[in-house]
Design a protein around this nucleic acid. Structure first.
Length: 277
DNA sequence: GGCATTTGACCCGG
DNA sequence: CCGGGTCAAATGCC
């Protein structure tokens, strides 16, 4: 058990370090403020996690002290948590090769839990949560909505951070690893989804006090799932995944991908195949 | 049977 | 009251 915690801790610290380096790199780029904010958030979250790990070790079940009255049904707690989670969105444009929204694979496994027609939007919005929510207490969720202007663009907004570690290579963990930092961990770089193109992200920091999940990380959130680490070299998978977001986020403006923005998808033929009923 | 998606109902905040 | 977000039963797929 202790080994686990230690690994988790190291993971977090490494991640924090990497993120900090990222941040440093971004300090020189005048353009992306949001990216920096995102990085900051992630760094903070890393620290939080690391600290919570230590705390856990020290006191056993640290447990959430500032949990007020309680008695509120689960739902309330969930709501509160939800409200305080950080949120950011990318715009993802999809090329012709990519099938549909489901395939907007970003390295995590999502499970759809709802869909809603949004007022004023042509297309419904899909609601997804992490598949491992129940198992690992991972509270990450995302919403995917096709832009009504350009059907090839999806607004993907993320909420919360993944506390799980799902390293399923077969799932397409290999997000594009665009520019910078080619830390190819293992064989991660699968070119499965070269279709991300321009993505803009914006961080909507509705984390008022910035202490989201300060007092209470989701109870089980602290330690990534064993499988993540099991895979020997890939202890960093969790990190990798999180990096994914950053990486995707970073290219904000005018970053040229290998495949070039131009190359992508001259004419998508979505409309033909019924896409999204 | 187990897991994922679908879909209408429900909850909650503005 | 309205609209966005979530739940949960029904359904589908492997």
């Amino acid at each position: 058990m202790e080994e686990w915690e230690q690994k988790c801790l190291i993971n977090e610290l490494l991640q924090g370090r990497e993120l900090a380096m990222q941040l440093q790199a971004h300090l020189n780029l005048p353009s992306c403020n949001e990216t920096r904010e995102l990085l900051l958030q992630q760094i903070q979250a890393s620290y939080d996690k690391a600290l919570s790990l230590l705390h856990y070790k020290a006191t056993g079940t640290s447990d959430t002290i500032d949990q007020p009255p309680q008695s509120l049904p689960v739902r309330d707690a969930a709501t509160v948590q939800r409200k305080s989670l950080p949120r950011w969105t990318h715009q993802v444009r999809v090329g012709p090769g990519t099938a549909m929204e489901g395939n907007l694979n970003d390295g995590f496994s999502w499970r759809k839990y709802g869909q809603k027609d949004i007022l004023g939007a042509k297309y419904p919005r899909g609601y997804y949560r992490c598949t491992h929510r129940n198992v690992q207490g991972c509270l990450a969720t995302k919403q995917v909505q096709r832009s009504d202007g350009d059907p090839t663009i999806f607004d993907v907004s993320y909420r919360g951070r993944h506390t799980c570690s799902n390293n399923n290579q077969e799932q397409g963990t290999g997000t594009i690893e665009p520019y910078q930092q080619q830390q190819h961990i293992g064989n991660q770089t699968c070119p499965l989804f070269p279709n991300y193109l321009s993505l803009n992200i914006k961080v909507e920091n509705d984390v008022g006090d910035g202490n989201y999940e300060t007092g209470n990380l989701s109870p089980t959130s602290t330690c990534p799932n064993p499988t993540g680490v099991m895979n020997n070299g890939s202890t960093s998978v969790a990190i990798e995944s999180e990096f994914t977001e950053i990486i995707q986020a970073a290219p904000t403006v005018g970053l040229e991908f290998p495949f070039g923005n131009a190359g992508l998808d001259p004419n998508f033929t979505f409309d033909d195949n019924g896409f999204f009923s």
